[in-house]
Design a protein around this nucleic acid. Structure first.
Lengths: 342, 342
DNA sequence: TATTAGCACTCGAGTCGAGTGAGTGCTAAC
DNA sequence: GTTAGCACTCACTCGACTCGAGTGCTAATA
């Protein structure tokens, strides 16, 4: 069966109405809601078709219809196409460019949650493509060295390295020289075994320490990779009856607190090459506990390769329109912020 | 009216029973539950007295009784006195001593949540009494210095310092010397204006940079002070009907996510000098959103002055007994961990 | 004097059935 | 192709009713 223009109009009307009320919507409502000037009976016929096409469903006989995941999908795709052109003004969000990255991210998450009344998440930018800018080893006490690693974008990592023998200043100086000349400007993912071997050869008897530093670099970056996700507005979930069922809500809240599961969403979103905004509806989601939710994600990029994901999580009947606008706005701000910052 | 031994037994029985079932408990139940061998009628008389004394309340006429905050208080105090002696074996919790502090704390929070089925929080240890161990300034690029600060216990802080003029190696070496000789071994709270002035004098034309480093030290430590609290098991709140009312649950979850409000609890607990364990019941709590909860807190100390708080948050009818045991056990482990580690 | 048995009373929770209304599908007429 | 009309479905509401756990009071008992 073909999805005629009229069917599309009716589907849109159903989705919109349902987004507002959260109640199944009936034929009579649509017959008044649209300017199609059709009687409820006609609408009923069309709705019957739409149901057959799998775009709407009836929770039970003699109830109105609600959109299926597929129905939402069509609505959302249309909306996104529409949004493409639209330049859109909304309440300015305040971002302070002087904040530490961590605080900035938390701030973004909170602002989005406050603006939308949904739960939000943001992942720290992935560092693996980021380049090493500065490395340094310092002697902290008799049996500890401190490795300090600065990445492009001035992100800093530290790692304590236990040592058996105390190193003298000259050795440390030499090691620092070796590290910086060989690794400066190299991206983390490009540090390969050959490079490591060459470094160790140069370090001579202290090759072990070089190994530690490299491990530290790799490890501390990878550790972050896994887990740095900030969330906000988790409690908003309880505002939507369809999610606040105890069992579901509990699982959702746990997903947000543990954060681990959210990484799959982040990855999925980062891998999607299309226009920044990505929408996952119900079962399209890579996370099982979220099958009753929708998520709108966007990808931001602070510097070459430093990309992260922002996501807004709500019920399937979330206000996609507003969420997409808000996200786009936020993305612009983040972009601006970085460009000025650099 | 006096709280006779018999009344106390009955009160205890009521509390215990209510902790288990969450239902108001009636006189007949108690008459069987205790070995007092009293008829329900006698119990009723006693209960009537207990109610008059404000230790139990009736949710409505013709319902059983439930403990009031005051009633819980008596029960808990008794229990704590009892626990004082008890050495207690329970399922070993796994703590890996090699973890980063942050991960260790998260781990502790999660373990406690898993073990108790309540929500948990842990504050990072307060640093202000901690001593500076090692300071260092490095030139990262033409217009940025990196200040690295290591505290006793090997906690590391970093701060980027923008500079106008590029400093030569000799100057940086000199500044590092000044910083380490003057500040090494000093606790953060003991850095006063006189000391700062002396430092700046020594630094000569680079006094501004010294000021920045000190600011960085103070600021980064204070910033942590405010906010480093980790939570786990927030979703457990929804397991208890008396808390999972939408409005209350939402506020609670928010308190846990924003974490800011939890600081008052941390402070209150740190200030209480008594035997490590502290119990807050209902309105005794410094946090308004938690007036239907109880919190059991414990204080841990990793090093001289580095004290933090662990808290377990549940409904007023939480299993105080188990919670206290679990907390004590955890505290021992943390203590052991540090002593071996050092 | 303390304890107990007995009884009337209260009140929340659950069950049942009738009534209501929003909604559908189908059919026949326009 | 559209519409009016009608029978039918089904969740929801609401009041009447029952049930049972629990209380307080009184009078009898040890």
């Amino acid at each position: 069966m073909e999805l005629t223009e009229r069917k599309k109009t009716i589907l849109n009307a159903i989705v919109r109405n349902y987004l507002e009320t959260g109640e199944p919507v009936g034929s009579r409502t649509i017959s008044k809601y649209t300017d199609l000037n059709l009687s409820s009976a006609t609408i009923r016929n069309e709705m019957s078709d739409l149901e057959e096409m799998g775009l709407i469903v009836q929770p039970h006989t003699s109830a109105g219809r609600i959109p299926s995941d597929q129905g939402y999908r069509i609505y959302v795709d249309d909306m996104l196409a529409e949004k493409e052109k639209e330049v859109d003004s909304m309440r300015e969000m305040l971002l302070d460019k002087e904040e530490k990255l961590e605080n900035l991210l938390k701030h973004v998450a909170r602002q989005l949650a406050d603006n939308t009344n949904y739960a939000t998440m943001i992942s720290a930018p992935s560092m693996s493509k980021n380049k090493l800018k500065f490395l340094q080893i310092s002697r902290v006490d008799a049996d500890h060295l401190l490795a300090t690693i600065v990445l492009e974008g001035n992100l800093i990592k530290n790692k304590m390295i236990p040592v058996d023998e105390e190193l003298d200043d000259a050795t440390i100086l030499k090691l620092n020289m070796i590290l910086n000349t060989n690794l400066g400007g190299i991206s983390v993912e490009n540090i390969n075994l050959g490079l490591i071997a060459a470094l160790k050869a140069q370090a001579g008897i202290h090759s072990e320490i070089v190994g530690h530093v490299i491990d530290a670099a790799a490890e501390s970056i990878r550790a972050d990779e896994e887990l740095e996700i900030y969330t906000s507005g988790t409690n908003n979930i309880l505002k939507y009856p369809e999610l606040s069922d105890n069992q579901k809500a509990s699982e959702l809240i746990n997903t947000f607190e543990e954060k681990h599961d959210l990484t799959s969403l982040v990855e999925s979103s980062l891998n999607a090459t299309e226009h920044g905004i990505q929408v996952y509806i119900g079962n399209e989601m890579p996370i099982a506990t979220m099958k009753d939710c929708s998520v709108v994600t966007a990808t931001y990029e602070l510097a070459e390769g430093m990309r992260g994901t922002v996501g807004i999580i709500g019920p399937k009947r979330m206000d996609y329109d507003k969420v997409v606008s808000t996200l786009k706005k936020m993305m612009h701000q983040l972009d601006d912020l970085y460009k000025k910052n650099d």
